[in-house]
């Protein structure tokens, strides 16, 4: 890991009429690092993603502090400069992949639009679709979003997010709308993209098992502050904060799963179960 972090974040944020949501939240993301941001719903996780993209004002919020990214403070950029960062240097994978696609545009048009937001011409879509395990056929891109399953839609969202080879990918609960098998596939896709392209990922989730399987480091967000931050293994082995202990204790345990894992193929998902099982969770 380079000494200079890719993103260094220190922000307080509030929404109009709702008071503070983030209280002096601080964390860093190194080059090519996957950081998990964990907390229950309503703890301000999505606010962090919106603030990095500079979209908080659209939701009636505002933030103070600084977000250093690639040598610039994102909070002091002008609108036009911030627009060129969004989608180009920082990709975003949404929580509900189908709702985040325009219902009346074919996938091809949505792909072209995402490309033309930052570059001329049209993208080389075959290798792109292959890299997220989508069918690389013209007939696939001719579809409207309504004929996609949630899993396919999320792969397509990831394809759009990595279109411009961003240095950082923000994934805001990207697996919460998916069934558990598809969840595992999407998680290994993230791990893959990270290994192959060195894309750093901020993985926001309330699902500790998926965080354990994917992330190098974990930050626990509670009531608008980071209560604990460290290497994934350490956090799960020796949780320091009461809230972290409660989160880990809440992971459901399936009887006889260790037998299954021993015989089954070693996916990232089962690696996660392994880490958790090792530490007696």
């Amino acid at each position: 890991m380079n000494s200079e972090p890719l993103l260094s974040y220190r922000v307080s944020a509030e929404y109009r009429g709702k008071g503070a949501v983030l209280r002096d939240v601080q964390f860093e993301i190194g080059q090519g690092e996957i950081v998990g941001l964990v907390g229950r719903s309503g703890e301000g996780k999505s606010t962090i993603a919106s603030s990095i993209l500079g979209l908080l004002p659209l939701k009636g919020g505002k933030c103070t502090g600084w977000i250093h990214f690639q040598g610039r403070d994102l909070l002091s950029l002008r609108d036009g400069e911030m627009r060129r960062v969004r989608g180009k240097a920082i990709g975003f994978v949404p929580q509900s992949p189908l709702a985040a696609l325009n219902p009346n545009l074919r996938l091809r048009a949505q792909l072209d639009e995402a490309w033309r937001a930052h570059q001329e011409g049209s993208p080389d879509w075959k290798p792109l679709l292959q890299s997220v395990s989508l069918p690389d056929e013209v007939s696939f891109l001719r579809q409207y979003p309504r004929s996609l399953s949630v899993g396919l839609a999320q792969r397509f969202q990831i394809a759009l997010a990595i279109l411009h080879r961003p240095a950082l990918l923000l994934a805001d609960e990207p697996t919460s709308a998916l069934d558990s098998v598809t969840q595992g596939e999407i998680l290994s896709l993230f791990a893959n993209l990270n290994r192959r392209y060195g894309i750093a990922i901020l993985y926001i989730s309330h699902d500790l098992a998926s965080v354990a399987s994917l992330c190098h480091r974990v930050a626990i967000l509670h009531q608008g502050t980071i209560v604990e931050c460290g290497l994934a293994e350490e956090i799960f082995a020796r949780p320091q904060h009461e809230y972290t202990r409660r989160l880990i204790a809440a992971i459901p345990n399936v009887p006889g799963r260790s037998n299954l894992d021993a015989g089954g193929p070693s996916s990232d998902e089962s690696r996660a179960r392994g880490i958790l099982a090792e530490h007696g969770v």
Binding site: L58, R86, K88, P94, S96, A99, L101, E113
Partner: peptide, 16 residues
């Protein structure tokens, strides 16, 4: 809607 917010998150200009 989600997809218009998403379009902004991808850096689309206002005209687009």
């Amino acid at each position: 809607s989600e997809f218009v917010l998403m379009a902004r998150a991808r850096g689309y200009s206002s005209w687009r």
